[in-house]
Design a binder for these strands. Structure first.
Lengths: 110, 110
DNA sequence: CGAATCCATTGACGTTCGTCAATGGGTCTG
DNA sequence: CAGACCCATTGACGAACGTCAATGGATTCG
């Protein structure tokens, strides 16, 4: 490996190619997916053929119902997920207008 | 959109396809990338042809030198990044044995 | 050797996060 | 209507996070 030649006291700030706004958006997506429980939920919804009911997640994970609800809210705020209420049930699915960035990241996982 | 038929009091826990251990690992990678500063650093290293010196990052971002150092430590602990010291300088690059998962996620960004 | 440069570590502080218990609203069934 | 079920919100708490100031080690130049 070849290391660059350097001169003391002279730095070479790299040019940042991505716009700050885009960095911020991508960061939000990554934050939403960075929790193990939310990651599993997101992958589950990615691979599901039908929308999934909250009560199924509550039965799956070893956390309380309010915590599941809290995680879904995070995924909603990040624009990753979409909810449809029917009767007493809330069905979640991947957002139909998922950003291309989010789609690429989700597809890159597992 | 067609919603599943449901019966009160009967949940349908989805089968989780990913191993818990893999979920945890992926989560660590996402956590490491979820901070805007670290994300920019990681993308910078991904696209750099040569290893990049810490002092260049310190000159680039509007944060203190210890904070830059702290972020690099996070990226190191996540196995994303690799350091080589030469003289007074520390050069960072993407880890040469980056996991396939990490590589896919990095390539999916921006 | 003495000063300057680069960098990691430590300690501290405020903020955010993940979690739960408690509560309340909405919907269906008997 | 009364009870059961599903779910979101609120408030609280400990843990983790992002940041900085201060410090110290290591290296190089004069």
């Amino acid at each position: 490996m070849v290391l660059p030649e350097r001169e003391r006291g002279v730095c070479c700030p790299p040019t940042l190619k991505a716009r700050p706004q885009k960095i911020e958006q991508t960061s939000e997506i990554l934050k939403a997916l960075a929790d193990p429980t939310r990651l599993q939920i997101a992958l589950c919804l990615r691979d599901a053929k039908e929308p999934v009911c909250i009560c199924d997640f509550t039965a799956t994970f070893d956390i309380s119902q309010p915590t599941v609800s809290h995680h879904m809210a995070k995924l909603r705020e990040a624009g990753l997920v979409n909810v449809t209420k029917q009767g007493i049930w809330s069905f979640y699915r991947l957002s139909p207008d998922l950003s291309a960035a989010a789609r690429r990241i989700l597809d890159a996982i597992g």
